[in-house]
Write a protein that binds this DNA or RNA. Structure first.
Lengths: 229, 229
DNA sequence: ACCTGAACACCGTTCAAGT
DNA sequence: ACCTGAACACCGTTCAAGT
């Protein structure tokens, strides 16, 4: 009787779900970094064979994209300020903080300068706010792109710096370079050499963001663009 | 006679030099992308065994670092403008263009937010110019860091976008997303959807750079800082 | 329907041994 | 001094076969 009564689906009952695979992957990435996620490790983590992973997932890229979309869907959607310029800033900072929590997302994401379908509302928010600030739609899109460049750069630089710091010793390559600095050739840099560690620690993301936005938005006092419809 | 006359060095004569290894590596990267550079491919390219590569180079990381330093040393050192603000801009654009020519350098480099010893003069130039603009040394260093974030972001985003474009078909993931866009949920984005390809092509690096610099430099008209010595 | 072992075609790296 | 074959411990991915 291969089909007993009804409701019981035919075939071998599943022991692993796509969700299991994704959950395990997320756990492994958070623990060991995404560079160290391999299909084989993932399989052994959930106690199955590598080939089983391929039953649930097309390939490694597909796995990562599915993970990303999962995160994006779980994201809270805070209320952003009414004032449009401030809304641009707040949304960008929100994106930044999301990425800062899992920098590897940025490393995967760099490619398409938007954040996947389920994160698109953030782009919409920024572009809409920029238009309210008086931007032409095209300017608004370019503003978003500038913000994305700056944000992704910040995240990636910080991420790979801290990666190096954990794997190698405390003293980074940069420390070495700064110690051997010739004060004649590099007067400003060697004067600063003592302060680099402090500077590195400082979070100045929002300073740069504000500068970028202020410089790219039309001067305030303009009438909002296309607000009548 | 293991040591005939003099001058002839002892031991087996070399058939491969460190320089050969680096040259071949550079060629392979330019041709196939740095993601596809493997020690084994490199070895077969110069007609030797993988183990030989390890005679000339400590490991793969070391190989890449040596390559980078090689490039940096060959870089031209253009005359930059006298006006300090303009000098900040020009140097940053110079860095940007160097990286744009070989984006993989940025991917390797992200880690230490400076460009290796032989490229440090660029950092010195920017920091010095910023100080002349009236920055405190610390502000100047932070300005450089902002510029670096923005520049590296621009390069990396563009690089991985064009990589995806070449490997997959013409139609990118982004195109798909934009076509299925719900105009109710994303009014601004769907209005823009036709223009994205054009926008993607536009090079707006220097616009963002200027905004960043203008926003972070003290307002012009200040006396240059510490110009007396 | 779901899972698997075994294989394919790769990696980076080491090391004893050869010239 | 320089080079090498062979091995180690890995990869991602496929596929015929099993339950």
């Amino acid at each position: 009787m291969p089909r007993p009564a009804s409701g019981a689906p035919p075939g071998r009952p599943p022991r692993t779900s796509r969700a299991d695979v994704l959950a395990a992957a997320s756990e492994l990435i958070d623990r060991d970094g995404w560079q160290n996620l391999t299909i084989r490790r993932l399989a052994s983590q959930i106690g199955t064979s590598p080939a089983t992973v391929y039953y649930h997932v097309r390939d490694k890229d597909d796995l990562l994209i599915q993970l990303l979309n999962g995160y994006a869907e779980q994201l809270p959607r805070p209320e952003f300020p009414d004032a449009p310029r401030q809304r641009v800033i707040s949304t960008a900072i929100f994106i930044h903080d999301v990425l800062a929590a899992r920098p590897w997302i940025a490393e995967i994401l760099t490619a398409d300068d938007l954040l996947g379908v389920s994160a698109l509302w953030m782009v919409e928010t920024i572009v809409a706010a920029a238009i309210e600030c008086g931007c032409e739609p095209e300017q608004a899109a370019l503003l978003y792109r500038h913000i994305w460049y700056y944000t992704v750069g910040e995240i990636l630089v910080r991420a790979s710096r801290s990666r190096r710091q954990t794997q190698r010793q405390q003293r980074s390559y940069r420390d070495e370079v700064f110690e051997g600095l010739d004060p004649t050739e590099f007067p400003r840099l060697s004067a600063l050499s003592g302060q680099w560690p402090t500077l590195t620690g400082k979070d100045t993301y929002s300073d740069g963001l504000r500068a970028l936005v202020d410089g790219l938005l039309p001067p305030p006092g303009q009438q909002p663009h296309a607000v009548t419809q």
